[in-house]
Design a protein around this nucleic acid. Sequence first.
DNA 1: TGTACATCAGTGAACGCGCGTTCACTGATGTAC
DNA 2: TGTACATCAGTGAACGCGCGTTCACTGATGTAC
Lengths: 205, 205
Amino acid sequence: MPKRGYHHGNLKAALVDAALQLIEQKGPTGFTLSEAAKQAGVTPAAVYRHFEGREDLIAEAARQGYEVFADLMEYAYQSGQPSALAAFEATGRAYLAFARKYPGHYIAMFESGISVNRTPELANVAARANEVLEKAATDLSEHIPEEKRPPATMFSAHIWAMSHGVVELFARNSPGRASPFPPDDLLETGIGIYLRGLGLVPPDK
Amino acid sequence: MPKRGYHHGNLKAALVDAALQLIEQKGPTGFTLSEAAKQAGVTPAAVYRHFEGREDLIAEAARQGYEVFADLMEYAYQSGQPSALAAFEATGRAYLAFARKYPGHYIAMFESGISVNRTPELANVAARANEVLEKAATDLSEHIPEEKRPPATMFSAHIWAMSHGVVELFARNSPGRASPFPPDDLLETGIGIYLRGLGLVPPDK
DNA sequence: TGTACATCAGTGAACGCGCGTTCACTGATGTAC
DNA sequence: TGTACATCAGTGAACGCGCGTTCACTGATGTAC
């Protein structure tokens, strides 16, 4: 850590980083503005030069998380093209990868209790992330005979729910709950079975 | 509310109820011992006649939740007999029904951060609930040809993850996240597709 | 039935703590001339 | 290049608050005789 004088130079980013680290360690609850300030080497009052308050700081962390999340999902979606199936599976994997690589962001986004409608900015970027998953689902559902095709939003909701469940129950080292399988495998196989159920993957192994 | 004198008569239960109500309203975080005491019409200090402290009160709420949960799961399992499939589907529905009917308990159990290994009692009752789901999965998996049969624990983990995900994302009126479908339907169809993927349900509608 | 007494389940005052937030302030930086 | 000055980004002290927990206490209840 380089010495610094009276001015920090990069305090806003440093505060977000500190917040993410604290959220990751202690949950969305354990996080305090004062502690984040302390970790950034600054007085609590200094935070108010950059944020409106505690909530605003968390919201900014979540916003940055959604930004990265949406980018990752888009990249994954592209990387699977032109196969709708490959694209879909890649977004599933990207979801889990994001949760593991950016746990602080993930918690800020999904467990901190801040509303996605807090600001238009936040709502937009969250919608962008959601649209990628929905697009992947729509592409894929076109391979299902129309009359037995479930709505794509339902379909993406299923995958999202399973992904989130795996993260919450098995990827986080949940207190006292041992994971029976590596979360990656769990999600991979789960999605595989689900897609077979939709007739999108050959029934045979 | 009947008048009461110096002695409450039923304080322990009243405190648990108050805690559940507060947890439901404000999340596992918003809950405070003092407020629970107040709601039960009692001094904060009185709580210590019945509990070791704040954490202990939450743990008791969670324990009671697991008790009800395990009972419900067992009942659902039995009610589907002798069809392994019916039994399995019933436990899935029971999961969601529990989460909706006992949101305070659900949060205390799965989101409050208290470890299931906090006390042997708590660990036991949690294990009992888990065993029901696993048993239902095992029964069902016997209908799958042995060589392509996934381990029953994996299978129950998938269902658990999807159920939990549906609860967290769509059943709770998550701030700013609208549910695209009724959660019951979402879970029902999700499990249906998953089971079809396992070849346990005819591929046709 | 009455009384003495142990036990139980509350009270209320006090504690130390860390929190988020506010305020007047001041040191550092950048810019105009 | 030097100087005056506006602007910016911090400080540090203070605030009021509600928290969990402790303690000596006291009112109510139940039981033995």
